[in-house]
């Protein structure tokens, strides 16, 4: 058997099949299984019996206030990532690239340092920062002169995402800074010098030359940020304590975990959990498609 270009087809098949099999088994199969599961009331712990329930799990999900609460929090995380971490990372990378600060290597290392730490460790660290009479509360007591002052933003649903957003920026800004810094190195320095000679200010160089040139990097970073934000579980789980704080800060992956693995009162908890998982995938894909459309309209990614 020979292929179009005269090579041996079995060799091609032999090379493709192992990777394809692994992909189908560990990526495609769980997605298809999860979609099927979400259309049933199947609970593997209750034997093999199941009923097809159509979109009942999805209808239940849309009527569940916890879903909307978790979705809102997830979108806040996406917002913090796309409109917080990326611009900050870009700005810091530009400052380092243009050598506007001394010891740029030191700042680069310090900003990237949180990324070397385990997310769980970071979560516990920030939890300690926010606890009663912890460092943040002590600072508040010092500034306000009130020895009983406490940092209570973690206790209210409407404010819990502020400290968490701050922690997210602290962790991930360094990553985007490194990505942008690496791409900035590829820029034609003569182009920047030409702009400077033409009398462009630093801000104009940044906005008119650098940003358009790195629009593709911004788009890729946005996609990374969106995908990462929607599957984010570890930081929020570890930075909050079980109960009010975690309920306040609940995001879709935590909602899915608590539903599928902890709510033993719900007979079809695995199927409901699968519906929530599929919603995460759909929302993630939708946001990435929107990013791509915006990127195309802005002609992002054409710098290469």
């Amino acid at each position: 058997m020979r292929g179009r270009n005269g090579r041996n087809l079995p060799v091609y098949i032999g090379m493709v099949v192992p990777a394809l099999s692994i992909f189908l088994f560990i990526v495609a199969y769980p997605i298809i299984y999860s979609f099927w599961l979400s259309l049933t009331d199947f609970n593997p712990n209750r034997g093999g019996e199941w009923n097809f329930v159509g979109i009942a799990q999805y209808a239940k999900m849309f009527n569940d206030p916890n879903f909307w609460h978790a979705l809102k929090n997830n979108l806040i995380v996406v917002g913090v990532s796309v409109f917080g971490q990326i611009p900050l990372g870009f700005g810091l990378a530009y400052i380092l690239f243009r050598k506007h600060v001394r010891a740029s290597g030191f700042f680069q290392s310090m900003l990237f340092l949180p990324h070397f730490l385990s997310t769980i460790v970071i979560g516990i660290l920030w939890k300690r920062m926010f606890q009663a009479d912890g460092p943040v509360s002590t600072l508040l007591q010092y500034l306000s002169g009130d020895p009983s002052a406490q940092f209570t933003l973690m206790l209210r649903a409407e404010t819990v995402m502020y400290p968490i957003g701050f922690a997210l920026i602290w962790i991930y800004t360094g990553l985007y800074m490194v990505i942008f810094l690496a791409n900035l190195q590829k820029l034609d320095k003569e182009m920047l010098e030409a702009a400077q000679i033409d009398g462009a200010s630093e801000f104009q160089i940044f906005m008119r030359v650098v940003v358009p040139a790195l629009s593709g990097t911004i788009l890729v970073s946005s996609i990374l940020a969106i995908a990462g934000s929607l599957r984010g579980f570890d930081l929020i789980y570890s930075i909050t304590t079980q109960g009010l704080q975690r309920n306040n800060a609940m995001v879709l992956p935590i909602f899915m975990y608590q539903t599928a693995f902890q709510d033993f009162n719900n007979d079809s908890r695995f199927a409901y959990g699968a519906a929530i998982s599929n919603a995460i995938i759909l929302i993630s894909v939708s946001l990435i498609i929107i990013s791509n459309i915006i990127g195309k309209r802005l002609k992002a990614g054409e710098e290469n």
Partner: peptide, 20 residues
């Protein structure tokens, strides 16, 4: 008491402390 009802009770007692 398990599941969502127990979670609501635990978080609810924390809300009582904070006045929420």
């Amino acid at each position: 008491l398990g599941g969502a009802a127990n979670d609501a009770l635990n978080a609810g007692m924390q809300k009582i402390v904070t006045g929420a």
